[in-house]
């Protein structure tokens, strides 16, 4: 064995190996070739074992050639391996193609009812001005629902509230959230800024614009100098928050529990104030009633009307929601047809 023949063997092996690597069809074949040429019992390894038979001065030369050839085969294996993996991956990806225009997997998502949503929207606005939420009972006593609100038993204004009575003596289904004013005043001291949302009841036949159950939000603010100007400023902020930049107006109203009393109008959300059927051609829509708390009501609340004054307001939640969402029929709210509810996404 001499250097020439050994080197020749190695070069032949190299050519053979590179040819086989180039022909290998899959990574498994490459693994086989790796073992065949470079494994412990591989052919190149076997050639290198013969190195001991060479004269000592040839050994480094053959070693260098063998190393070069080994590296060359290794590189070829790696390159071919990369190539083959790329092909396989490309095939897999091609096979995995989907129609990306198909709809996604639906994540179930419920809807929130417009009444509590509207209450939350109202509470959010007034909450920013320090109003805190209270709640009163729905089965209320006559005293708190009427008499303490300056509506005596035979007051003609009782006609404004057609009442549903219950078989609990002295009780009725509250006709408005206003009795909450009394309850708040009796339970806390000024400064008071309170918001009272809740369900109310009236003896009223059901049609597109009436119902015997409905929701209101009452507001109450009492402090030393709380005035009509404060009320006007707050209600303007409220109207702008819920209905956008629209004109508003106060006009005189009547409630036994406020003096002076006002109605608060917002420029018609349908016609923008020119006049249309929705606003009875007036250009205005009334969104709530308000006024300065009547001194008698303050007294029933345990507050001295000489030291304190305040305002109260009350609004129908459905009314606000109707105007914001163009709901055509009050019955939609308590019917809960999913075709209505699902529009509030």
């Amino acid at each position: 064995m001499d250097f020439e023949s050994l080197s020749g063997d190695l070069h032949r092996l190299k050519d053979l190996a590179l040819a086989e690597v180039a022909k290998a069809a899959d990574p498994a074949a490459l693994d086989q070739l790796q073992i065949k040429y470079l494994g412990k019992k591989g052919e190149i390894t076997a050639v290198l074992r013969g190195i001991g038979a060479l004269p000592p001065h040839d050994r480094p030369r053959v070693g260098a050639v063998a190393n070069d050839i080994g590296e060359a085969v290794k590189t070829a294996l790696a390159e071919r391996g990369f190539e083959l993996r790329s092909i396989v991956q490309a095939q897999r990806l091609a096979a995995e193609m989907v129609d990306v225009t198909l709809p996604g997997r639906t994540v179930p998502r419920g809807t929130l009812h417009p009444i509590p949503e509207t209450v939350a929207a109202i509470a959010e606005v007034f909450g920013q001005f320090g109003f805190v939420v209270y709640e009163g009972p729905e089965v209320e006593d006559d005293l708190t629902n009427f008499q303490m609100l300056n509506i005596a038993l035979d007051h003609p204004a009782r006609d404004l509230w057609d009442t549903l009575y219950v078989d609990v003596p002295g009780h009725l289904l509250r006709t408005h959230t206003s009795p909450g004013q009394i309850r708040v005043m009796q339970s806390t001291r000024p400064p008071i800024r309170a918001l009272l949302p809740g369900r109310c009841f009236r003896y009223e036949a059901v049609d597109a614009s009436h119902g015997f159950e409905f929701f209101q939000v009452e507001g109450l603010m009492v402090d030393e100098g709380t005035s009509m100007a404060d009320l006007k400023g707050l209600l303007d902020e409220f109207a702008h928050a819920l209905f956008g930049p629209r004109r508003t107006r106060f006009r005189p109203g009547y409630y036994p529990f406020t003096e002076p009393s006002v109605a608060f109008d917002v420029e018609c959300v349908v016609c923008g104030g020119v006049g249309c059927p929705a606003c009875s051609k007036s250009g205005w829509m009334t969104i709530l009633g308000a006024g300065m708390v009547h001194p008698v009501v303050l007294q029933y609340g345990g507050i001295d009307p000489e030291l304190y004054q305040g305002f109260a307001f009350g609004m129908g939640v459905e009314r606000i929601s109707n105007l914001r969402h163009a709901v055509p029929d009050l019955r939609y709210y308590l019917e809960n047809d999913l075709r209505f509810l699902e529009q509030f996404r």
Binding site: V107, P108, R109, G110, T111, L112, H113, I115, P116, E138, L164, L173, R199, F201, F212, E213, Y333, L334, N336, L338, L341, E342
Partner: peptide
């Protein structure tokens, strides 16, 4: 609502 349920408000009477 996030869990897929829709809110309703019904009559108390």
């Amino acid at each position: 609502a996030g869990a897929g349920l829709s809110e309703v408000v019904t009559h108390a009477l």
